[in-house]
Design a protein around this nucleic acid. Structure first.
Lengths: 149, 149
DNA sequence: TATGAAATTGCAATTCATTTTCATAATTGT
DNA sequence: ACAATTATGAAAATGAATTGCAATTTCATA
């Protein structure tokens, strides 16, 4: 089963174990989020969905994202903005982010060495880590070029 | 000159270069923040200040913190909460954080190796870094113990 | 010391994203 | 089809951040 299929299945399972009912609209939002496979604010996802299904409300999108977060298919974070972003959670390794202050692009990266050093730090402080975030803010490749012109 | 003296001086300089006037109330807030030398939300600082100087309003505290942030003596961040926190900026090297999810304690640490690896990552993506944040969330030493009981 | 332009303050009002409420509609098990 | 429960949309509520404005204070200059 592909990655998206897994996610869909996981959502279905969450529904059945939590006594949720099916809904066309919610399914549409969930599928769209999973297919798109990128970061969204509630508003961004809402506007994309609205183009295709204008009858779907902000509330439904909002609640769908919350639900995705609950069943572990999306994670919520702030990226230094005042709005929350939801990003798809992949079964793969944890990743960190490069956030472009100019165009807003978010680039994911993984770095095992950094992960390991983080564990070392935690051990030094006798700290039990359950989650972490690492974000580098600045200018992405494209925006550096633009700036140079 | 000690660390606090430096900060006070820097604030005074910012005032003079920006045509700001002196004010007892603002000075009190600023001094308290600098002396305390720890993380605050606006509300937390407001309540502490209010105990000693009840006539000082929330607005004044709010604006004082904004001002401190502008002149580089405080930095604003979210630490996964819905409220902003202001932390004193030390002239020393950049530091990262361990955030205890239980008691809210925030521990600072520095790690040059991690900093260096971050630069490597950025270089790989042709990304120009202007700021970064690294936070490890979990349980601090004390809370781990409590949990064990 | 008196003056006036400019900054500061407190309070209330606004903004803005998030979250909840509630009446109505849709879904599911019997 | 019925009853019970969940989902939905629109509007209202919430919560923190921010601003507008009138009153007050500061400070350089007269």
């Amino acid at each position: 089963m592909n990655k998206h299929g897994e996610a869909i299945a996981r959502f279905a399972k969450h529904k059945s174990t939590h006594g949720l009912k099916s809904s066309d609209k919610r399914s549409f939002v969930v599928d769209h989020f999973i297919q798109a496979d990128r970061h969204f604010t509630v508003e961004e996802l809402y506007f994309e969905v609205k183009k295709l299904r204008p009858e779907i409300s902000y509330s439904t999108v909002y609640r769908a994202l919350k639900l995705l977060a609950k069943c572990g298919l999306a994670s919520e974070s702030m990226f230094g903005e005042t709005v929350s972003r939801y990003e798809p959670v992949h079964s793969s390794a944890h990743h960190d982010h490069l956030v472009c202050n100019k165009c807003g692009r978010i680039i994911e990266f993984e770095n095992d060495k950094i992960e390991k050093l983080q564990k070392d730090v935690a051990r030094n402080y006798d700290f039990l880590v359950s989650a972490h975030r690492l974000e580098l803010y600045g200018l992405c490749k494209k925006c550096r070029r633009k700036k140079a012109l």
